[in-house]
Amino acid sequence: MTARIFAPAGKGAWTTTPDGNRRRVLLHTDELMLVEFGFDRGGVGALHSHPHVQASYVAEGRFEVTIDGQTEILAAGGSFIVPSGLVHGVKALEAGRLVDSFTPHRADFLG
């Protein structure tokens, strides 16, 4: 795999996610990936799980975050971790952005 190790501001193509939000892969190696997600107010990241460990930072906005049945509201500057295999999802209470890291990388985001 060709790794991306630098990401100048504003670079990278946005793609529409299956749930109608947007994402762009910022950086990745085999071991780690950094992805920015954009949400309109009311946008939902549907409940799901994956084998990757995920750490997320709320860059902008406010989100209702559910992990393994526990729900918290996080605003800009907040963060959360999703251990491997736990069911999780978000709802944007206002327009916002999440910056997520995944280990290992999400191959499904590259194709």
Rank of each mutant, 00 (worst) to 15 (best):
T2N: 14
T2I: 12
A3Q: 15
A3F: 10
A3P: 07
A3I: 04
R4L: 15
R4K: 14
I5W: 07
F6N: 09
A7F: 03
A7N: 13
A9C: 00
G10W: 05
G10T: 05
K11M: 15
G12S: 13
A13P: 01
A13T: 15
W14A: 08
T16M: 08
T17I: 05
T17M: 12
P18K: 01
P18E: 03
D19P: 03
D19E: 15
G20H: 10
N21S: 14
N21I: 09
R22L: 04
R23M: 14
R24G: 10
R24C: 06
R24I: 05
V25M: 03
L27W: 00
L27G: 07
T29Q: 01
D30I: 00
E31M: 11
E31G: 15
E31F: 07
L32T: 12
L32W: 03
L32C: 10
M33E: 08
L34P: 00
V35M: 14
E36K: 04
E36C: 07
R41C: 08
G43M: 06
G43W: 00
V44C: 08
V44S: 08
V44T: 11
V44R: 06
G45S: 15
G45P: 06
A46G: 11
A46S: 12
A46M: 05
A46F: 04
L47T: 02
H48I: 04
H48N: 09
P51G: 11
Q54V: 08
Y57W: 13
Y57L: 15
A59V: 04
A59N: 09
E60T: 08
E60K: 11
E60Q: 13
G61W: 01
G61K: 01
F63Y: 06
V65K: 06
I67W: 06
G69K: 11
G69I: 11
Q70D: 13
Q70N: 10
Q70C: 01
I73F: 01
I73G: 03
L74G: 07
A76Y: 03
G77Q: 06
G77Y: 04
G78A: 03
S79H: 15
F80N: 06
I81G: 09
S84T: 13
S84H: 00
G85P: 09
V87T: 14
V87Y: 03
V87K: 13
H88T: 06
H88S: 11
H88Q: 11
G89N: 10
K91S: 01
A92K: 07
A92S: 09
L93V: 09
E94L: 10
E94G: 08
A95V: 02
A95K: 10
G96I: 05
G96A: 08
G96T: 05
L98W: 00
L98T: 02
D100S: 07
S101G: 11
F102H: 02
T103Q: 10
P104R: 13
P104V: 14
R106F: 05
A107Q: 14
D108F: 07
D108V: 09
F109S: 02
F109H: 05
F109L: 14
G111E: 12
G111P: 15
